[in-house]
Design a binder for these strands. Structure first.
Lengths: 131, 131
DNA sequence: TATACTGTGTATATAGATATATACAGTATA
DNA sequence: TATACTGTATATATCTATATACACAGTATA
């Protein structure tokens, strides 16, 4: 199974944390349903060219937060999460991300109209790119 | 001078890096013009309740990237940067930030229309909040 | 004019966080 | 039963953040 997990080594955000956020998005967004097996820490670490301890750290955080379950010798699976919780994570996370992006754009001395225009341009580019 | 520099200790992004990004936004955005003195590493570290070595690390990175100049015993000042460079940093950074936000929103299985709606709601909230 | 004080930045040692390499333990299958 | 999968643990190196001390620059005062 090919997962859209990517890490940026340029980012100062810890690698394990990038992985956590991306899996959270996939799970809360419904891309990965309950019971689905995740790649093993070895498979993922090879895929991302990082240490298995780094992928394990990410899986540990996800497990502590209740998104996945791991069984020694068996593997890691998407946990059974209440739809309401998934929805809450989805709505809250996306809202926070977009709001932070707006705040940052405003700190560059753009005004709301300009931010809106730039954003709509990006959406347009994405729409064209999808075709 | 009161600067809108804030750090989030919850974020996994290193503190020094958060400071770098926020100063970069203020400088590229024109809020801080060339020659403006920045707070000393002691003043800023007291303001943010962090170590002076952390603020120094942020100032060092900003100096290496050409945004500021520091003189031992005298202080730290906004560097004289070409308007074209400031503009480039401004446009590129904001575009990247908004684009990444869109990408992340899409990874939560929102579609472009939904992302647009959420974003416009946020802008609306911000417009109301400004009043 | 020299010295002391107060500002400024700079350097070093240490602790915690992050990422790695390597070895150990559990489970399933041939 | 052996092998190949799986997760788990430990030691080490690097990065980040801190506390503390040192050095430079400007100003005030004797």
């Amino acid at each position: 199974m090919e997962l859209p997990i990517r890490i940026s080594k340029d980012s100062r955000e810890p690698i394990y944390h990038q992985i956590v956020n991306q899996f959270k998005a996939l799970i809360a967004g419904g891309h990965l349903s309950a019971g689905t097996p995740l790649p093993s820490i070895r498979a993922l670490s090879k895929d991302l060219e990082i240490s298995i301890i780094t992928t394990r750290r990410a899986y540990q955080d996800l497990e502590v937060q209740g998104f996945i379950r791991t069984l020694q010798g068996k593997g890691t699976f998407v946990a059974d999460i209440a739809e309401s919780l998934k929805q809450e994570v989805k709505v809250t996370s996306v809202h926070n991300i977009l709001e932070n992006a707006v705040e940052t754009a405003l700190s560059y001395d753009y005004n709301l109209s300009q931010v809106k225009e730039i954003f709509l341009n990006i959406l347009q580019d994405k729409e064209k790119g999808d075709k």
